[in-house]
Design a protein around this nucleic acid. Sequence first.
DNA 1: TGCCAAATGTGAGCAGTGCTCTTGTTTTCC
DNA 2: GGAAAACAAGAGCACTGCTCACATTTGGCA
Lengths: 216, 216
Amino acid sequence: MDDIVRLGREQLASVTPAELSLRAVARELGIVSSAIYRYVKDRDELLTLLIVDAYDELGAAVEDAVAAASRRSPRARVLLACQAFRAWSLREPSRFALLFGTPVPGYAAPAERTVEPGTRVPAVLVQLLEEAWLAGDLTTPEGSVPRTVRRDMDRIREEFGLTAPGPSVAKGLGLWSALVGAVSFEVFDQYGPDTLTDPAAFFDLHLESLIAAVGF
Amino acid sequence: MDDIVRLGREQLASVTPAELSLRAVARELGIVSSAIYRYVKDRDELLTLLIVDAYDELGAAVEDAVAAASRRSPRARVLLACQAFRAWSLREPSRFALLFGTPVPGYAAPAERTVEPGTRVPAVLVQLLEEAWLAGDLTTPEGSVPRTVRRDMDRIREEFGLTAPGPSVAKGLGLWSALVGAVSFEVFDQYGPDTLTDPAAFFDLHLESLIAAVGF
DNA sequence: TGCCAAATGTGAGCAGTGCTCTTGTTTTCC
DNA sequence: GGAAAACAAGAGCACTGCTCACATTTGGCA
């Protein structure tokens, strides 16, 4: 069981999620192809396991980066969290694709198993937002927020026990999607070829701007 | 030839890029599977055709949205461009995935055929940035930019004939990646289930913030 | 110790994929 | 009319996920 996940993970080092082969892990396991179904219901089942596995490793990486700098400002830690996110993603492009790329064909992740681990990274960001708010280090955005969005943000605030204002939470969510976008551009080579000679520097610069926009 | 692209496009309405089947378009064409290779070298070849096709349609949609509001401010037109991008992407999720999602397995898009159409949307954004700059409507960012990034931006400025300052161009690029990230979150259902009841409103709000961060 | 049942592994088979190769049939053009 | 080019067919290879009937190993209990 654990071996299967391990082999699947190893396979993802050299292959995109869509071409992950159950037969290949069976082969690697020294077992005939049909025997794999004794341990795993489906290819989808393996995908789910790998998704949870990846979410957990990514979540841990980001949490560790933040925890290792617990004495620094929330703003500095947000930057560290984002950098850790980027570093993990560049190290594990296929697993990043598994989590944030095109969903695999007929597959729909079972929410009850993936939502919680999938929330770890945004939870870190939102927690730091809250910390900054409590410390008075958050400049809260002006301008009005549509009622619908306000309601959605209130639900999120309740879910995470946040006292930070709705508009700030909205900006935090925006940072999250922008972060994934920026990393996705790098991992998937979306910037043209040779347009960024120093992507890390560009990323940091971009992030500064995003973080400032949130109000940190 | 054109029929093949058409059928491929139609297939992409109900299927992700990774499971696009050459045999299926042959079938639909009333032809035996091997005959398709008379018209198309590879599955990769068809993918390239579909990518160019999608880039062109997306580019046209965004350009049209901007052109239809030529009398409005650059800032307003950037917003319209982004909304058009989002609208097209939500209308064509598989084709969005083809362009901005996980790259298909062994496939590497031939730069000489895809770079130009793929640049149309960012070109629009950067053009509006330039326009705003020329009109004096662009607040240029403070803070220093690393030498490496500055050089990269200078190359882009030259390529597009821009007079807008490097830091602004960098922010524009950042907007582009953040935009794709935001849309990707929606298309790929990356926000948890039922967390956004009014995604369009959230998108607009987020975009306001991003556009402001660029300096428009 | 002996036996039975559960767990695990096997191999054949089905339907689907991309792709190649050889053969056959149309068009087209001179 | 005949040669050449274009198009189509069909068999075949290697791969995929998945199922099913069957064999073997293993563990626990009487």
